[in-house]
């Protein structure tokens, strides 16, 4: 891996009696798009807040952009762009006014030019006088991204950036992220969406505050130890109920007109599926597990 932009160990944060993040260790290299996955309430937002200096970790240490996350949070803030989960710009200001405010807070030289450039880059120039509160989800997200990029950060932290955004806008958003990463920006993005996870260079999966797995999407699928079969046919609903009774079939999930059957013990699964392979009305194929199967598997192993 190239030089590490984020390198933290043992990050722990407790709210009251609840340990939200438990000994998290992360290494993210320059220019990487790093996906941060996990169910709701798994500590993703808290972890991101600790990385950019909004929260002080109870335990653990590390560096972000070469600065100590405990003592140099003011310096980290200057070079990080953080896009919050919820739209958190001023809805009663126009797009332009919001960006101008951000430019002033970062004390940018040539603030005016920077705002103009950001408006053009993200196609917001025509709407610059519109109030942020009147924008649709996709445009709000675009404006938030423009605001986060205004001070040319080296690291972009995106907390569920595409929640509530339509597929077209999501695709454009990800194209932009890849463009930025190609130019050397490091991006850490949290998400629930598996299709988005597949667009990341590397992934970390966290649940209940702990890191469960880390690696590229292909690696995670290869190393998970799951075997998967796909079956097409009639009356799959009844079949699903039957298959779920098999001890080796951990997951039986409908996908459109087919079922995905996965289990960790390949031999046992094949043996128990034998009688169903024989049925003529069913068409079976051996398949690769999907990321979603992998993560559900990881989570079950955990609980």
């Amino acid at each position: 891996m190239t030089e590490a932009v984020i390198d933290v160990q043992g990050l722990t944060k407790t709210f009251g009696t609840r340990r939200v993040v438990d000994r998290l260790a992360l290494r993210v290299g320059r220019g990487e798009i790093f996906g941060f996955l996990g169910p709701n309430g798994s500590g993703k937002t808290t972890s991101i807040r600790m990385l950019c200096g909004l929260l002080t970790p109870d335990e653990g240490e590390g560096r972000c952009l070469g600065y100590d996350i405990r003592t140099q949070s003011a310096l980290i803030k200057r070079e990080v762009g953080y896009m919050t989960q919820r739209f958190s710009f001023y809805e009663d200001l126009s797009i332009r006014e919001n960006l101008e405010f951000v430019a002033e807070v970062y004390e940018l030289r040539n603030a005016r030019a920077a705002v103009d450039a950001a408006l053009n880059d993200l196609g917001l120039a025509d709407r610059q006088r519109q109030l942020a509160g009147q924008l649709s989800g996709g445009w709000k997200q675009r404006m938030a991204l423009a605001a986060c990029l205004l001070h040319r950060p080296q690291l972009l932290l995106l907390d569920e950036p595409t929640a509530g955004v339509d597929p077209q806008a999501r695709r454009e958003f990800w194209a932009e992220i890849h463009r930025l990463a190609a130019d050397g920006m490091t991006v850490l993005v949290s998400t629930h969406y598996m299709d988005e996870a597949e667009r990341c260079h590397r992934l970390a999966y966290v649940a209940y505050g702990t890191l469960l797995a880390q690696g590229s999407p292909a690696q995670l699928v290869r190393d998970c130890g799951l075997s998967t079969f796909t079956v097409d046919g009639e009356n799959l609903h009844a079949l699903q109920a039957e298959l779920l009774r098999l001890p080796a079939a951990e997951q039986v999930v409908p996908f459109g007109t087919s079922l995905h059957v996965s289990g960790a013990e390949e031999d046992a699964l094949e043996r128990q599926l034998q009688p169903y392979f024989a049925r003529s009305e069913l068409r079976w194929t051996r398949d690769r597990p999907r990321l979603e199967d992998v993560f559900i598997h990881l989570m079950r192993g955990r609980s």
């Binding site: 003011a74 990080v80 953080y82 919050t84």
Partner: peptide
């Protein structure tokens, strides 16, 4: 309430 505080605090202000 609107969550803008979090954003504000993530900036150098």
């Amino acid at each position: 309430e609107r969550g803008t505080m979090e954003n504000l605090l993530s900036m150098p202000v």
